[in-house]
Design a protein around this nucleic acid. Structure first.
Length: 515
RNA sequence: GGCAGGGUAGCUCAGCUGGUUAGAGCACGGCACUCAUAAUGCCGGGGUCGCGGGUUCGAGUCCCGCCCCUGCUACCA
């Protein structure tokens, strides 16, 4: 059975979880659950990046130790992930002894394999106060930062350990060319390729200004003990995860799910580090887009924040997950708005999907005593001819992390099934005894359709999928049937003789506003 | 400033190498039906295809110019 080790970016422990964090975790969770459904041996890793100057500063401002601050923030993130049903297998924190030891080992491994890759250098460059960053020549026009042309650039120097990133340019270009799936979507790959063609500068690997981090394994020549710089601390979490007791993470990862803003770190610096340490590269890096708010760019400082808890409470965690992954293309940006959320909840969930379940189960109870008529799976699949082609599209979309397209395919099944109900008009068939066989195959085909849709939707709305599964009288639970080595989507479904039960509506309509 | 990708119905988007009356979903209007969460199905209104030129028998689709948006342009993560 294939191993599927999937990771998300570790979130910086400097604030509360917000919509952007949630989007990524929900997407990664849907991908992980889909692979579980497929019988892969899945390990979903998420976590927190807890070191760095900002964390230390924030802690100090609040009169806390960095450990106390990060404990609180980590707890807050974990609580949110639990609420959103993120089925992570491991939550890594970079301030733990295991991770620190792993970083040290990885760095020493680079020293060992490529002694020359780390070297001391006095870094100097034009520093833009507006960007809070050193600027490269390409970003300087007429002696000014292109992003802050009114500011004056400062010349700054610091002596640090440096990593010879420049040496890996050709290696990376060749790797990307040989493995086109390494960076997705294509636009992100193109950006990285064009960056590589411009050439790479070496990067600093240590800092002297702060100490809340992993000590760099070797002191500088003047004896100073520096702190490992963020990339050489945070990125290796994917690799150090396996060192924790009980972890079944095994390097290399099959997939890194990240935001498009950190593509470069994951597609250039991280693979270069791994190559320097003579370790295998991750198989794929997928950079998702961002969720904007009310048409405005989502930003921590802009004040256009959305209360995550309120959004989750509005229609429940499953509907929230569905909405985000259906509305925002996973490979591009999208927008969150309450209006849209409500529209999709009512149209897609309550009316189309929830009501299809209600009417089907109600008719099975009314016309068949609540028992699905007996047919073999082949006949059912043939009768429900709209299912198979969309399942193919669903699987193709999931294979490319195009979650919104997978959901669209599932909803085309729902739409076809609703049309089918009206075309067949079971309430008319039920009045004519000679139409009994037609009535039975119709309702059985609908039960079959719902069971298949429950499976397809499970990665996105695990608890609603289970609820439907139960109402259909299907055996066990979907989650409980998941087993490494067993492909639940490939296994035929036969609802014959299931005892359906009409329970509460899957997605109750919100109370109509008083006119 | 440079490079890349976009600007098509109220909203989100599809429109491959140029070819009959420009499509889908949602929203909106009408009709049908009654199994269902007043849900569903059918029909319909609605678009100067960013702007201006050009090539062509014919351009949303090609060329030139312009406007606007987004991303990247290496040390906040």
């Amino acid at each position: 059975m294939p191993k599927f080790f999937v990771t998300t970016a570790i979130d910086y422990a400097n604030g509360e979880p917000h919509l952007g964090h949630a989007f990524e975790k929900i997407g990664a969770d849907a991908i992980a659950r889909y692979h579980r459904l497929r019988g892969d041996d899945v390990w979903l890793l998420i976590g927190m990046d807890e070191h760095g100057q900002k964390v230390a500063q924030t802690a100090a401002e609040r009169g806390l130790s960095p450990e106390e601050l990060t404990d609180r923030i980590a707890a807050s993130f974990q609580a949110m992930w639990q609420r959103l049903a993120i089925s992570y297998d491991q939550f890594i924190r970079t301030s733990t002894a295991e991770h620190r030891a792993g970083v040290r080992e990885l760095l020493l491994r680079i020293f060992e394999h490529n002694l020359d890759d780390f070297y001391e250098r006095s870094y100097q460059g034009w520093y833009c106060v507006g960007c809070e960053a050193f600027k490269q020549d390409a970003e300087i026009v007429d002696g000014k930062c292109v992003l802050h042309p009114t500011r004056t650039l400062e010349w700054v120097e610091e002596r640090n350990w440096f990593f010879r990133l420049s040496r890996y340019r050709d290696f990376l270009l060749e790797h990307i060319e040989a493995h086109p799936e390494f960076i997705e979507p294509v636009t992100r790959r193109n950006e990285i390729v064009s960056l590589l063609r411009q050439g790479l500068e070496d990067i600093s690997a240590s800092r002297s200004r702060f100490s809340w981090g992993v000590p760099f394994p070797k002191p500088t020549s003047d004896g100073e003990q520096q702190t490992t710089y963020v990339w050489f601390d945070a990125l290796p979490n994917y690799y150090t995860a396996s060192r924790f007791p009980g972890s079944r993470a095994t390097w290399p990862a099959q997939l890194h799910i990240i935001g498009k803003d950190i593509t470069r770190f994951h597609c250039v610096i991280w693979p270069a580090m791994l190559e320097a340490a003579k370790l295998p590269l991750p198989e794929r890096v997928f950079a998702h887009g961002f969720v904007n708010l009310g048409g405005e760019r989502f930003s921590k400082s802009a004040g256009v924040r959305l209360d995550l808890g309120e959004a989750v409470d509005r229609f429940g965690p499953d509907a929230f997950r569905y909405f985000l992954l259906r509305e925002v293309p996973f490979d591009a940006d999208g927008n969150f708005s309450w209006e849209r959320f409500e529209e999709r909840y009512i149209a897609d969930l309550a009316n189309a999907f929830g009501n299809l379940a209600s009417r089907t189960i109600a008719m099975l109870e009314k016309y068949c005593g609540g028992v699905v008529p007996a047919f073999d799976p082949v006949s059912l699949a043939a009768a429900a001819s709209w299912v198979a082609p969309e399942e193919v599209r669903y699987a193709e979309a999931m294979g490319g992390q195009l979650l919104h397209e997978a959901l669209a395919a599932a909803w085309r099944i729902v739409a076809r099934a609703n049309e089918y109900v009206d075309r067949q008009a079971p309430w008319k068939l039920a009045k004519a005894p000679e139409q009994r066989p037609e009535l039975e195959i119709t309702l059985a085909a609908l039960a079959y359709t719902l069971a298949r849709v429950a499976l397809l939707v499970w990665p996105f709305m695990p608890s609603k999928a289970e609820q439907l599964w139960e109402q259909l009288g299907a055996p066990g639970t979907i989650g409980g049937s998941v087993q490494a080595g067993t492909d639940l989507l490939a296994r035929p479904v036969n609802p014959s003789a299931w005892h359906v039960t009409k329970g509460a509506p899957l997605f109750p309509r919100p109370q109509a506003p008083v006119a």
